[in-house]
């Protein structure tokens, strides 16, 4: 039974969990593509949009960044097997993300 246990992530069989994450990534990518279409452009509603703008550009930026973080989390946690790694590796993997936040905040033209 130990053999079966090693082939699961979160209690789900390895190959199945990979496909679930793939479907999630595909769904989030589709949502991402439609968000700019449904948002106002920087100078107001865009003429070439096939949708009526329903929310502001600032909200679309927040949503897009949130979706990108969710997707990177899925890839790192499940495909790079951080879910199953030692804390040391998780810590190493998180380092550049912490660094990039400080770098971006430090460089931002406040």
């Amino acid at each position: 039974m130990a053999h079966d246990k090693t082939r699961t992530i979160g209690g789900i069989e390895l190959n199945v969990s990979y496909m679930i994450i793939w479907a999630v990534l595909l769904g989030l990518t589709l949502v991402e593509v439609f968000i700019p279409e449904m948002a106002h452009g920087p100078t107001g509603p865009r003429e070439n949009s096939i949708f009526d703008p329903v929310f502001s550009r600032n909200l679309s930026i927040v949503l897009l960044i949130a979706l990108a973080i969710a997707k990177t989390y899925c890839v790192a946690w499940f495909y790079m097997h951080l879910v199953d790694e030692r804390p040391l590796i998780v810590l190493i993997g998180c380092t550049p993300f912490i660094f990039s936040v400080f770098l971006t905040v430090g460089l931002f033209p406040w």
Binding site: E32, V33, I35, P36, S60, I61, L64, I65, L67, A68, K71, T72, V75, A76, Y79, M80
Partner: peptide, 15 residues
């Protein structure tokens, strides 16, 4: 490489 592209795609193409 896939993970980085997710960020590049969002920041360069969508935002």
């Amino acid at each position: 490489v896939d993970l980085v592209w997710i960020l590049v795609f969002t920041f360069v193409y969508l935002i």
